[in-house]
Design a protein around this nucleic acid. Structure first.
Length: 135
DNA sequence: GCCAACGTTGGC
DNA sequence: GCCAACGTTGGC
């Protein structure tokens, strides 16, 4: 089992939209590294849901509802999509600033590769963020 | 709104 | 295959 973090700009698609929809297709990714991460996602893998933009923070947990398949928004067979389903919101969001300050998260891809939109996290990183978000 | 980081494109 | 120019992302 692998652990992941996905970014979304809340003005485009927020956590609340995600919950209201009961899940969504994660498509439109046009970056090879992010694409490779999508391909590595397996049904049931836990996912952290992160808001980028004015208020950068991890807001909730999700899971992979369906592994990768051809991205239906393009005929270009290089690109794939996955389906994600919401699990639950964090009791309190974990801000990027806190993540940067937390020693146990010093190697997290979120801060190492700022522009990557789909990235793996370790189980430890996942658990630490969940712990910080539990109140 | 600015700017740094960095992926992509295209000329050579 | 190199590298400069360009575009996009995302933090501040």
């Amino acid at each position: 089992m692998n652990y992941w973090l996905v970014k979304s700009e809340p003005s485009a698609y927020s956590w609340d939209d995600f919950v209201k929809d009961g899940g969504t297709r994660w498509d439109g990714v046009r970056n090879y590294q992010a694409r490779n991460n999508l391909i590595a996602m397996k049904k049931g893998d836990p996912v952290l849901y992160y808001h980028s933009g004015a208020l950068p923070e991890v807001v909730g947990t999700a899971k992979v509802a369906k592994g990768s398949y051809q991205d239906p928004t393009t005929d270009d067979e290089r690109w794939v999509a996955v389906d994600l389903a919401p699990v639950k919101p964090l009791k309190r969001p974990v801000a990027l600033g806190e993540i940067k300050k937390e020693k146990r998260l010093k190697d997290i891809s979120l801060t190492k590769q700022g522009r990557l939109s789909v990235m793996p996290v370790t189980k430890e990183e996942y658990d630490v963020i969940l712990g910080m978000g539990s109140g």
